[in-house]
Simulated assay, not measured.
Amino acid sequence: MIDLLKEVARGKRGARDLNYEEAARAAEAILGLTASPVQIGAFLIAERIKLESVEELEAFVHVCRKYAHRTPQREGLDCAGPYDGRKISFIATFPTAFLLSAAGLPVTLHGADSLPPKWGITLQDIMFEAGIDIARHSREEAMLAASESDVLYADAQKWCPPLGGIRDIREEMGMRTIFNTAEKLVDYGCSPYIVFGIYHNTVFDRLARLLIKLGYQKALIVQGVEGSEDLYIDRPSRVYTIADGQSSLDIIDPESLGLDIAVPEVNWTARVQLMTAEAVMQGGGHLAFYNQTLLNSAVRLHLAGKAGSVEEGMYICKALLDTGKAWDVYMKWKSSLRGCQTAAQSPG
């Protein structure tokens, strides 16, 4: 590890990018904990200063995948949002997952307990409020729920144990590292489609080249709400669409689709997130969050070829929301996981 550190830690001007083989060696040393905590921290900080190259990111993703439990699902969509959570916005990707499933598109969600730098509300926090303690569920139970609902949730630190092994180091560092990107691309369901959230538009090109290298059939990179994969509902969102090995910049404007609406100020907690999502899935709730779920679902449905246009996707998804089909899928998923939990708690 020391020889690799010498290359990436020479300062902003002297540092060089590692080639794929070197980066893979570094990832192996970190995830295998053969490097010391000091070496791991130094490497991650040096990469943060230098900025990760496409080859380095690709190597780290592949090494993460090597140690992960990856189970091919029916051809579906991977929703790759930030593991450090959200603080000031609605997590529309949660109800969107069940709406997409109701429309015939299987979905994989994944995450972990909150991480730096944001330490926000996570999908697992919302699930806990719904009575699902994901830490108590096996991968087999998650897959059973997916078989009944076409929505898979993967607890990253259970499905890729080495990520759990370096959690303490990441918490002590308290900053973004290369793993904030790599962990979102493990692709537990082996999906041909992905929607991936970013914060800064300066990484659009790098991430587009990475997703092309990773072989996704189609991908959407979204400069979304709080760096998430969620499109804004109160203003346009910049996106990169990737298909056939090519990428193109686009703007998705909710106003042009008749959906633009002011977002109310909300004191978000995990409980409020759950209540808002459940209201939307039952065809109600505040119009801003209903529309945001509708927009994100329609765009993702179109990306995966399940709708001929975003407008058609909106028509399909609105009917599924208003008739309770998305709610039915959610209840199947929730009942499966809670049923496993209850069985595990029963004596004898």
Rank of each mutant, 00 (worst) to 15 (best):
A208M: 08
S346K: 15
P37Y: 14
A298M: 13
G197W: 10
I45S: 05
A344R: 15
L259D: 00
Y188R: 12
K50V: 08
I194N: 00
S147Q: 12
I316K: 06
W159N: 04
Q273D: 01
I49C: 03
Q124S: 06
I169F: 09
Q341P: 01
G283H: 10
F204Q: 02
Y232A: 11
I2R: 12
I251C: 05
F43G: 00
I88R: 13
A112R: 04
L207S: 02
A59R: 09
H137E: 05
V186S: 01
L274H: 00
E148Y: 14
G283P: 04
L295C: 01
I194H: 04
G165V: 07
V61H: 11
I49V: 14
T181Q: 05
I233H: 03
D230W: 08
E7P: 01
L18C: 04
I221F: 06
N180V: 06
D150P: 04
S335W: 13
L301V: 02
F204K: 07
G14H: 13
A262V: 12
E148P: 07
L152T: 02
T342N: 07
S149F: 07
G111A: 10
E226S: 09
Y290C: 09
I134M: 11
V63F: 12
I252C: 06
E58P: 01
G111F: 12
E55S: 15
E140R: 15
A92G: 08
R271A: 11
R271S: 07
Q73W: 11
G164N: 09
G164L: 11
Y240C: 09
A142L: 13
K325N: 02
D187V: 13
G32P: 03
L337H: 07
E21T: 13
W327N: 00
L100K: 04
L214V: 02
P72A: 10
D113T: 11
E183N: 09
D84S: 03
R300C: 08
L152A: 09
F289L: 07
T241I: 15
H69V: 11
S191W: 04
G285L: 13
Y240P: 01
D150V: 07
I40R: 11
D84A: 10
R16M: 12
F289R: 00
S36F: 06
A262K: 14
H62V: 12
V263I: 14
T177H: 08
T269V: 03
E21G: 10
A102F: 05
L4S: 01
N19D: 15
R176I: 07
R48S: 07
L287S: 04
L44W: 10
M173L: 15
K87R: 14
R86S: 01
A42I: 06
L144P: 00
I88Y: 12
A319L: 14
I2A: 07
L144C: 06
Q39S: 03
L163K: 02
S297V: 13
A270M: 03
A146N: 07
L259N: 02
S228Y: 11
N201T: 12
A24K: 15
E21C: 08
A343H: 02
L210M: 05
D113W: 13
T181V: 15
T177E: 06
H286I: 13
V151R: 04
D187A: 11
G215T: 09
